[in-house]
Design a protein around this nucleic acid. Structure first.
Lengths: 224, 224, 224, 224
DNA sequence: GATGAATGAGGATTCATTCAT
DNA sequence: AATGAATGAATCCTCATTCAT
């Protein structure tokens, strides 16, 4: 009746036919918002920017979302949902833990870069927008969403066979940091493909990049 | 009409007697700005916030800096200068390349966290503020500063003995991403010290965290 | 295109079968509007508030009334109609003029307070909403309605036996002012009933509240 | 430094001379606000209206008052202060209680009407603006101010010699209601002067307007 | 009769910035 | 060097109103 749920999918529409157009409007709004937020960040994006990108007027957005913050939250949530889905799909196929991690990281990076076909840069927003650009009343929601996604990484990392004494939490944070940084410097069509980046990063964590340590002759494992 | 010191050193003060005090005022302003930008980011910080933190009026800031963007730029530059200095000092002492990298990373993290004694969080700003929160006319200056600092990392990483075929640029970006992420989750007094974090991160890159590879039985060389 | 009943009775419904229901809808809308206007005043009431209170959508109201101003006008008119009716009934029974005034005032106050059984606070709106909260194009209509009601007071007051030289118009305005103020401070269930208030007010006008003047024995009139 | 106290007089100015102009600006703003609020009421008055009436821009008002509500509150408070002062002065001169009441009422009405020489209609606002037109967060402040003023009436009415059993509170409310209504119908230059209105109202309360009561026993009837 | 969606004209408010003193 | 006052453009948001369905 008034504004829509700020979160997740729009309310189910009574008449599927008459609604297609309406639903598209809503989807179009969300996509436009994703694009603009992704490019300009939260603070520098105005409601008119978004409205203009949708072919709406600024006031109309408020029919769908009660505030700019809620709109970003919806975009963010959609981003989380989509990356999560892509991540799950990538990881689902059988394989050893390191392989699955590499696949997950690849999927993650592709979503960040908006390379999935027909995809608006929802995931990009999810990575680009830092909580502290943000209206405080949404902080918790944001962090909850982010944590929900990061839990997928945790699960994967927990499954990794690791050397004794390795701090898995730190490993996760280190990996996520490196991944979040990628959109900063990655240029599509550049020297490295996302697959290559993913593979190299995972490999470097798995086996290191230092010169192969020659086991000092003899036998038996030793720890680093 | 008014002195403009958009960058780097403050303008020379007209009267020699007042110079010391002036410089102090100026320094106080810069520090206050660092604190506020660090906490709230660029967009959410108002000139009045900064002025209030210095005991000045918003209008007064404009005697020292021609705009908000220039003020942040000065803070950022000061951040870069200080981290750079700390980094250089840490790296200067003799040691093998991996050790020096670990020391550099440690110094970097300590500056980020504002742990250097008596330090305003200049370095924190340098990491917290993303270029795209920022007025476009300063983008290049910002990026130049950042690149200047990152060159120190490059130098160190170029000195690293690495396995054949490792992409040093990617390695650097991976490391910097991981480091920039630390302020997001690091809590002073928590389980991990910054030194431990630095050591673990560098070690993981050097030797990996995967289980020790069993040399394939037999002897002799193995592939890169 | 749409039926317009700006004033007074609702538009005749097209289909006879639906008429009853239509009239109910319409009445419900008017009552809801009365409630909301009464509580929040004209300016602070939104069409959505009213719609929400009826279970309608804001847009739907426009089928019944062409504008917010017209809706209030209808509520106001209904208020006038109802108070007028109650007033007339109260005053119709035989009695001397002061008694009839007291009855009229009592009826007026009960309507204001919405104490008539099953009554929406139409009359409350009539007193609460001041013309100058109001779109200018309705001013005259509003004032005409108000004057129509106040004429009933005038008639009653004209019938009052009064001391020579008393300004009847001023008396009426004084009484109406006092009455309009009652909703401001009256609390149902408080120390004074509306009947008591009415009686006390009328009595104070009739005989004054000053100490009884003892006519100084002897002869000759004297003034209060 | 930021915005002024929302209430009462502006902060004392350090330099009396340099400030005269500034103080005048502030006073001019307050007066302009009084005029506009008085004419249009709270809701229909825009900040631009007020700014325009002062020769300021809308934004500038916020240097002096943090919000529209606070501005009205200041006007209201000034109104209360001024009426209170005038009332006190009128009542201070010696005289019997009814005489003093009449003088107080006269003063009150003159302030309402803005007849005091050189006076902006602060008092008019105080009477015209009803609490429920108003942002809820200021309700209590408003009511406290109003009560503060009404206490002066209470004191005067408590001093009145009254017939046994008269409800003094009700009497006060009745009188205040009648007085508040005056600005609604009073036209300067009309048939009744404010003094005459005041005198008639007080006299009617003191001695009533009904025909002189015939003292039961004894003789010597007198006319109605 | 009713609704969902959209509009667009404002409205209050914020804030970097200017400038006379 | 600093400040108080003011500016004005821009921003988020509100809300009466419209209209196709």
């Amino acid at each position: 009746m008034t504004a829509r749920a700020a979160f997740g999918a729009p309310a189910a529409s009574p008449h599927a036919t008459a609604r297609t157009q309406a639903r598209n409007r809503h989807a179009a709004l969300l996509e436009a918002a994703a694009h603009v937020f992704r490019r300009r960040g939260y603070a520098l994006t105005t409601m008119r920017d978004i409205a203009g990108a949708t072919g709406m007027t600024a006031g109309s957005i408020y029919y769908h979302y009660p505030s700019k913050g809620d709109l970003l939250l919806a975009v963010y949530a959609e981003g989380v949902r989509r990356v999560g889905e892509a991540f799950d799909a990538a990881v689902a196929r059988p394989g050893d833990a390191w392989t699955r991690l590499r696949r997950g990281v690849t999927a993650h990076l592709r979503m960040m870069a908006g390379l999935a076909p027909g995809d608006a840069p929802f995931a990009g927003v999810f990575v680009q927008v830092q909580p502290h650009d943000f209206p405080p009343e949404h902080h918790d929601a944001l962090i909850a969403l982010r944590n929900g996604y990061e839990a997928k990484f945790r699960a994967l990392i927990d499954a990794l066979p690791l050397r004794r004494g390795v701090d898995r939490t730190l490993l996760r944070l280190q990996l996520i940091g490196a991944l979040n940084h990628v959109p900063t410097w990655y240029r599509p069509g550049g020297a490295r493909s996302l697959e290559a980046i993913a593979a190299a990063m995972v490999r470097s964590l798995q086996a290191g990049v230092g010169p192969r340590v020659v086991p000092p002759r003899g036998f038996g494992a030793r720890r680093g």
